[in-house]
Amino acid sequence: MQRASIDSRELIQRLKLEPHPEGGFFCETYRANGKVVRESEQAMRSASTAIYFLLCDGAHSSWHRIRSDEDWHFYAGDPLDVHVLDANGTLVTHRLGNALEHADAVFQAVVEGGNWFAAECHDAEGAALVGCTVAPGFEFSEFELAVPGALEARYAQHRELIERLNPKV
Rank of each mutant, 00 (worst) to 15 (best):
Met1His: 15
Met1Arg: 14
Gln2Cys: 11
Ala4Ser: 14
Ala4Gly: 12
Ser5Ile: 15
Ser5Gly: 04
Ser8Trp: 03
Leu11Thr: 02
Arg14Thr: 13
Leu15Met: 05
Lys16Val: 11
Leu17Lys: 06
Leu17Ala: 08
Glu18Ser: 14
Pro19Tyr: 11
Pro19Glu: 06
His20Tyr: 00
Glu22Ala: 11
Glu22Lys: 12
Gly23Arg: 04
Phe25Pro: 04
Phe25Glu: 01
Phe25Asn: 04
Cys27Lys: 15
Thr29Val: 02
Thr29Trp: 09
Tyr30Ile: 09
Arg31Asp: 06
Arg31Ile: 12
Asn33Asp: 15
Asn33Ser: 13
Lys35Asp: 05
Lys35Phe: 05
Val36Arg: 12
Ser40Tyr: 09
Gln42Lys: 15
Ala43Ile: 15
Met44Leu: 15
Met44Trp: 12
Arg45Thr: 11
Arg45Gly: 08
Arg45Ser: 08
Ser46Cys: 12
Ala47Thr: 09
Ser48Cys: 10
Thr49Tyr: 08
Ala50Glu: 07
Phe53Cys: 02
Leu54Asn: 11
Leu55Asn: 00
Cys56Ala: 14
Cys56Lys: 10
Asp57Gln: 13
Gly58Val: 04
Gly58Asn: 05
Ala59Met: 13
Ser61Leu: 01
Ser61Asp: 07
Trp63Phe: 05
His64Arg: 02
Arg65Met: 01
Arg65Ile: 03
Ile66Ala: 00
Arg67Met: 06
Asp71Tyr: 12
Phe74Arg: 01
Phe74Trp: 05
Tyr75Pro: 01
Ala76Arg: 12
Gly77Phe: 06
Gly77Ala: 03
Asp78Cys: 05
Asp78Lys: 12
Asp78Gly: 09
Asp81Leu: 13
Asp86Glu: 00
Ala87Tyr: 07
Asn88Pro: 04
Gly89Val: 04
Gly89Arg: 03
Thr90Asp: 15
Thr90Ala: 15
Leu91Ser: 10
Thr93Phe: 00
Thr93Ile: 12
Arg95His: 07
Arg95Cys: 10
Gly97Trp: 06
Glu101Met: 12
His102Met: 06
His102Pro: 01
Ala103Asp: 10
Ala103Ser: 13
Asp104Ser: 05
Asp104Met: 04
Asp104Tyr: 08
Ala105Pro: 02
Ala105Ile: 00
Ala105Gln: 06
Phe107Asp: 11
Gln108Met: 05
Gln108Cys: 10
Val111Cys: 02
Val111Arg: 05
Glu112Trp: 08
Gly113Gln: 04
Gly114Ser: 09
Asn115Phe: 00
Trp116Lys: 07
Phe117Asp: 05
Ala119His: 00
Glu120Pro: 03
Cys121Gln: 05
Cys121Asn: 14
Cys121Asp: 07
His122Gln: 13
Asp123Gly: 10
Gly126His: 11
Ala127Pro: 00
Ala127Leu: 01
Ala128Trp: 07
Ala128Pro: 06
Cys132Asn: 07
Ala135Ser: 13
Pro136Leu: 07
Phe140Pro: 01
Phe140Asn: 04
Phe140Arg: 06
Ser141Gly: 10
Glu142Trp: 06
Glu144Trp: 05
Glu144Ser: 14
Leu145Gly: 08
Val147Arg: 15
Pro148Met: 12
Gly149Tyr: 07
Ala150Phe: 03
Leu151Val: 11
Ala153Ile: 05
Ala153Lys: 15
Arg154Asn: 07
Tyr155Leu: 04
Tyr155Gln: 11
Gln157Leu: 09
Glu160Ala: 15
Glu160Phe: 10
Glu160Lys: 13
Leu161Tyr: 04
Leu161Lys: 14
Leu161Trp: 10
Ile162Lys: 02
Glu163Thr: 14
Glu163Asp: 13
Glu163Pro: 00
Leu165Thr: 11
Asn166Cys: 09
Lys168Ala: 14
Lys168Met: 11
